[in-house]
């Protein structure tokens, strides 16, 4: 089947999609957007997190056809047109929150949405918002640092 959707503000189309393909597969293998990651494909790790009509979801649990005509934002859509990193991306680099980096795209999408919703999160809020995103390398401390840093920088900017 053919699936069309808007990804990171651009119209995207894929043909010959098998009906059992996930949104994750279509993004990664058919649309040239492999930033969203395939760590578990069972909704237990968050590495495939994208925003579907603004809402963070596991793209591995969205059938590709369900994304028809909808708006998808992936990690590739976080940075500006000129390639400038968004606040959360820069904070992850600066705070040492990236090791192997496989969990990073999903965490960035989740953290970016958290700060949009709650610009001054407590540590408890950060932990809860990111509790669906597994990281195996960092022990999460630097990820917390990064989100705190991004929140502080966002606060300073306004």
């Amino acid at each position: 089947m053919r699936v069309t959707m808007t990804v990171n503000g651009r119209p995207q189309e894929a043909d010959d999609v098998w009906e059992g393909e996930s949104l994750l597969y279509v993004l990664r293998e058919r649309m040239g957007l492999p930033g969203s990651k395939n760590a578990c494909e069972q909704g237990e790790c968050g590495s495939c997190t994208v925003r579907l009509d603004g809402v963070p979801v596991c793209s591995c649990l969205v059938a590709a056809g369900q994304a028809q005509d909808r708006e998808v934002t992936t990690v590739e859509g976080l940075s500006g047109e000129d390639g400038e990193l968004c606040t959360v991306q820069q904070a992850f680099v600066d705070a040492g929150a990236v090791q192997c980096g496989f969990c990073t795209p999903g965490l960035l999408v989740a953290a970016d949405e958290l700060l949009e919703r709650n610009p001054e999160p407590t540590d408890g809020d950060i932990r809860e918002a990111l509790s669906g995103n597994l990281c195996r390398c960092t022990g999460y401390e630097k990820i917390l640092d990064a989100v705190r840093l991004a929140a502080a920088r966002t606060g300073q900017a306004v």
Partner: peptide, 10 residues
Amino acid sequence: KVTGEFAYSS
């Protein structure tokens, strides 16, 4: 790695 461009084996 934060832009999603890093090419993992998968």
